[in-house]
Each structure stands twice: as C-alpha cells, then as structure tokens.
Nucleic acid binder design. Structure first.
Lengths: 222, 222
DNA sequence: GTTTATTGACAGTAATACTATTAAAATCGT
DNA sequence: ACGATTTTAATAGTATTACTGTCAATAAAC
C-alpha cells in the first residue's frame, strides 16, 4: 500500500472545522504542526498561541480554521479513523474470513506507515495523539450533543467494521460490538501502559499485544 | 458489608494533598462537594472558584488542601481504588478460586453501595467520575513522574489483584495482568458507551456487562 | 488566657481562550 | 492587466482561569 492520499482524501465531518484546512497552505501546516506539538507537549499545554508562534502566524488566523483546540483534536482523530477504515477495508478485502480477525488486530496495533500519506505529517505521532488524547475528546459533558452532530462517526464506523467481522465469524456470539470496542481501546491503553505503567500489562511488545488481542477475540467467540 | 469506613480509612499517598482533607470539616466538605460538582459539570468546567462559591469559602482556602484540580482528581480516584481494593479482598476472601473471577467482575461493574461510607459522599457519583475523568489523570505528559511519586498505586494494586486471581486460575496464561487491566478499563468504557455511544456496544445493562466480561476472562484463559 | 492552627477577606498576576477591527497581500475571473 | 474577492497579518482587547500572597478574624488546644 502506498500514498493513496494522492487520490483518496478522508471524509471528515465539515462541522468540526470552520474552514477546510486542506484548502490552503496554512491549513495544511496547522494540521502537520499541531500533530507535532500535541505529541510533544500534550493536549493540556498545547495552545493556539504557541502553535501560532511556531507557524509564524497569529492566533486569529488559526481560529479561522478551528473554533478551539477541542475541535482540532476531533478533526485529527476523525482523520486517523478515516485512514484506518480505508486501511482495514483495503487490507482485509481479499482475505478469507478466518484470517480477517488477525489481520484487523494487526492493523489496529501497528502504526500507519509513513508512506501512506503525503510528506509533512507524522502518522506515528498521530497514533500517539489518538492513544493519549482521544479519550479526552469524548469523555466530556458534551458527548451527547457532539455525537448527534456526528463528531465520532469515524471511530464508531471503524469499531462497527470490526464488530461486523466478529459477527460473521460467529453469528451466535452475543457481544460482537462490545468486543470490538474493547479490543480497539485496549490496543491503545496497553501500548500506553507498556510505555508508562508497565505493572498494568505483560504484553510489552507489539507482537505480544497482537497475539494477546487476537487470542482474546478468538477464544471469546470460540 | 456496612459502613466500614468508621473503622478503616483508605490509605492515600500524602503527596497528592497539601493538607489532609479528613483532618477538618472544610476538608471533608471539599471532598463531598467536589464529587457532586465534577459529576455535575465535568472536570473541564469544574473550577476551584465555583467550588469555593458553593462551599461559601474562598479559593485560597481550597488551595491549602490541594495544589490544583488535577491533584484533587488523583485524590478522588485513589480513594475510589482504595475502597475497591478493600471491597475486593473482603468479598472474595472466602470464595473458592473458580468463583473469584465472577465475583471480581461483579464488584468492578457494580457501584459501591452508599452504606459503605459515612454520610455525605455519593459513591455513585464517584464512580461516574472514575469512569469519565480518571483517564485524564494519567493520560498526560506527567505520567512518568507522577507514577514515580506513587500517584497511581491504587489502580495498579487493584488491577494487580485481579491479575493475581487470573494467574491462580490458569498459571500458564501468558497475559494475566494485561487481561486484568483490559477488563477494568472496559467495564468503565462499556458503561460510558452504553449511556452515550450505544453503537459501540451491545452489553447495555449491568447484568449483560458482567456476563460479557466474566465470559471474556473465562474463555480467554480457557 | 495565650499560643497556634484554621479560615475568610481581599488584592493581584500571568496565562488562556477567545473576539473584533483593519490593513496588507495574494488569488482569481474576465 | 484590472478590479474584486479571498486570505492572512497585525494589533488590541476582554473574560476567565489558575494560581500566589498578605493579613485579620476566629476557633481550638494547651
């Protein structure tokens, strides 16, 4: 798989941005550099002022693209899930059903390769952000209204696809969609724990994590 | 089990507070009312100023107990996990090993009963906070230093206990501690999803959640 | 009854998260 | 090449947040 974004651009809910960042040079720089900065300093310390300084532009220019940093975060995670959905469909398309689960888990646990996207954006850093910051995007008092606006469809669709695969493998299993979301969240948390709170896990390496989660799904659904 | 906190007080790392909130009336009111307020408005909108207003005291008085709201959150979650550890040990103490897993999952998925604690504090609301806000306590750039200070031992210990049980049931299973933390996090996330993002789960009721997670553990470890 | 701890009242600061206005620069259609 | 339009830069300003510091009033402890 290579740089498909030259032809395919992920579909992101226009409500999350005020002005399409991919419609201008500044917009693209905002995306690329915000990923670098949020990964570097964390969402809490990240401000539009700092980003403006680094991009040698002004706060007000940034506010033309995103109402606030929360919406920018939603944008970044939506983008991630759109890429992941494409990757999942692309990779599992021609696989026999019994191989799809392992392939899916592998996709969830392995960072997007840098070739998948044009130049400036670091997908490894984007994954770091999804792991460490994306729960903050929906664990808020605005979940319900933002969910209604469709801010989380990317994640929901991806999780739904994995749920669908699980359902096909065993149509009698009662909790395919719960199991799917558990596996996705866990892939992120276990990676974070391995790096920062190692007492909470024994799956320290990517290969172990993939084995752990694949096994978890397969055994659970028989 | 009844109001054991009359005799047992959870042991909380003194580094998280500047002044022990249980050493004064104001301190206790801070704990009780911050739980109500954080549950009500969410961590983002919760400020010491608002809390001071509601308690008819001043910001500076609150700052004498907690350096900032992040430390207050750490305190509340530590407290929760200390209670849960006690509950887990108490409840599973005399059970045969094959029943301990189901009992543990039940404990994780069922809110602490109000009788467990003296008067003013709502344990249901404390659980809401643990579900919706506690990831924000460790998904920060300060994890490593705060972990070193022991801010997360409560959660780590609890998760470790469940891991130990899993290990006893099947000593050959490779990922008992990963499985334990997955189940605990999932119990919280699935509850949140059921309420706010129902597409992400099929285990909508507490009883289903308990069944889903018990089954997940049992099947995974054979 | 005096020391000591605790709280309340008040003032103040730096940073954050914005909004608004206007001018300059780039781009775009014809 | 021209004016029209869009985009950005520069600047200013506001409300709120997240604190810190000082000092007096009060309550508790010895």
């Amino acid at each position: 798989m290579h740089s498909f974004l030259h032809s395919v651009r992920p579909n992101i809910n226009p409500k999350v941005y005020s002005k399409d960042p991919f419609s201008s040079e500044l917009g693209k720089k905002i995306i690329a550099e915000s990923i670098v900065m949020i990964d570097e300093v964390g969402l809490e310390s990240f401000t539009f002022k700092k980003l403006a300084n680094r991009l040698e532009t002004t706060e007000s220019s940034l506010y033309r693209y995103f109402e606030n940093k929360h919406k920018l975060l939603i944008y970044l995670t939506s983008w991630y899930w759109a890429l992941m959905e494409y990757r999942l469909l692309y990779t599992t398309a021609n696989l026999p059903i019994h191989e799809k689960i392992h392939a899916s888990v592998k996709i969830i646990c392995t960072p997007l390769s840098e070739e998948m996207i044009e130049g400036e954006v670091s997908l490894q850093k984007l994954l770091n952000i999804v792991i460490a910051e994306s729960p903050k995007a929906f664990l808020t008092k605005d979940v319900d209204s933002e969910n209604k606006e469709g801010y989380f469809t990317g994640f929901k669709r991806f999780s739904g696809l994995l749920g669908d695969i699980i359902k096909i493998v065993n149509p009698n299993y009662e909790y395919p969609y719960s199991l799917a979301s558990v596996v996705i969240e866990s892939a992120h948390y276990q990676r974070f724990y391995a790096a920062h709170l190692p007492k909470l896990c024994d799956a320290r390496q990517e290969s172990q994590l993939i084995q752990f989660l694949t096994d978890l799904i397969n055994k659970t659904i028989q």
